[in-house]
Amino acid sequence: MMKGLKKWRLFSLLAVMTVFLSACGEDYISTLKPAGAVGKEQLNLLLFSITIMALVVIVVSFLYLYAFVKFRRSKQGENHMPKQVEGSHTLEVIWTVIPIILLLILAVPTLISTYKLADVKAMDEVDEEGNKSALTVNVTAKLYWWEFEYPEQGIVTAQELVVPTGEKVYFNLKAADVKHSFWIPSIGGKMDTNVENVNKFYLQFDEESKDLEEGVFFGKCAELCGPSHALMDFKVKTLAPEEFEDWVASMQATEGQVASPDSTDLGEATFANSCLACHAVSGVGASGAMGPNLTTFGDRNRVAGVLEHNKESLEKWITNPESVKPGNLMTGKYGELSEEEISAVADYIMSLSVEE
């Protein structure tokens, strides 16, 4: 008796936790609080499917309880034999047709949404001057960071995707090493990034991120890709269209910007000698760099995608990146740097910014 009660207590506790946890989730990372047209449509489809499945569970449970109560032995007697329905064509048709109808009810809107959200023909449309009318971002997933290239604007950044609100943004997704998966929970998705081929889809960002607690939406890698998979985050900054154009102009204005090994600033000189081979400090260029572009590092929300954005975290990352993200591919002369040089490099990198 006591064992049975303990099992029911555990079940009740899990049920209560499920109810409470279902309400958890911040605006910047919750699929249940979508901030984009794609995410809203996917949530509506999810709720519709849950409603259909809940209806099936309720009906089946009712029939079970009804039979359990009506045909119990104490009421019908020991020798009661229920009506035999074996071979009933009517029943066979009913329990075959009803599931087919339910599957069609689920399948039709699912297929419509799938094809709608996969329609990327507008990605190739051009205006009268031959310029592409839609914003396209080339996303490259790497161990364990993200690179974002804006081919029409001629700029590239890393770890923080910047997009305008109120319009469709098209993505070309690929991976540089192993399979990853691009996912912005509050906006929509997700889609795999493969080494062999490019996947394409679009998202729409309806709300500006500046009003969020963190100031950005959170993006994740949703495909197990190695020991630091859980730490392969990126951030999404959504701006009003005119602010996005200002950001693009600020990035384009960094063309030719480079760290000088002859600089009198110890941090810049050390960076030029030890880091510049892998990390660019100009936002103008193409994808394919060995390490993340650092042009906007001072404007970011995190260090290495997961640490607090401050000098101490950056020094920790420079000193021993393996302790932060096991299996990452950062290599270089940072192991030979003195504490003074590491501090100076951290100051220089934190100063890199395009936002006023």
Rank of each mutant, 00 (worst) to 15 (best):
M1N: 13
K3T: 13
R9L: 14
A15P: 02
S22H: 05
A23E: 00
D27H: 10
T31V: 13
V38H: 12
V38I: 14
E41G: 14
N44L: 14
L47P: 03
S49R: 08
T51M: 09
V56H: 02
V56A: 08
I58Y: 08
V60T: 10
A67E: 04
A67N: 11
A67D: 07
F68G: 05
G77M: 00
G77W: 00
P82R: 00
P82E: 04
P82S: 02
K83F: 07
K83S: 08
V85A: 08
G87H: 06
G87Y: 07
S88W: 01
T90N: 12
T90S: 14
I94W: 04
I94F: 05
I100R: 03
L104P: 01
L106C: 10
V108S: 03
L111K: 14
S113Y: 10
Y115G: 13
L117F: 09
L117T: 13
A118S: 15
V120W: 04
D124F: 07
E125K: 07
E128W: 00
E128P: 00
T136V: 14
T140I: 13
L143Q: 07
W146E: 01
F148S: 03
P151V: 10
E152Y: 01
V156H: 01
E160K: 13
L161R: 04
V162C: 05
V163Q: 00
K168V: 04
Y170T: 09
N172W: 00
N172Q: 02
N172F: 00
L173Y: 02
K174R: 15
A175N: 01
A176K: 05
D177W: 04
D177M: 08
S181Q: 09
W183F: 11
I184D: 02
I187R: 05
G188W: 01
T193C: 15
N199E: 06
L203Q: 12
Q204H: 06
F205L: 09
F205D: 04
D206M: 09
E214D: 13
G215A: 01
V216Q: 03
C221I: 04
C221D: 15
A222T: 03
S228V: 05
H229G: 03
A230S: 12
D233Y: 14
F244R: 12
E245T: 15
W247M: 08
A249R: 12
A259I: 13
P261C: 11
T264K: 11
D265E: 15
A272L: 12
N273H: 04
C278I: 10
C278Q: 10
A280K: 05
V281M: 00
V281T: 03
G283D: 00
G283Y: 06
A286D: 15
S287Q: 02
M290G: 12
L294M: 14
D299C: 09
N301K: 09
R302E: 13
V303H: 03
V303E: 00
L307M: 14
E308M: 09
K311W: 02
E315I: 15
K316L: 12
T319M: 13
T319D: 13
E322Q: 15
S323K: 10
K325M: 14
N328P: 08
N328W: 08
K333A: 13
K333C: 11
E336L: 12
E340P: 12
E341S: 15
I342E: 06
S343Y: 02
A344W: 02
I349P: 02
S351Q: 00
E356I: 06
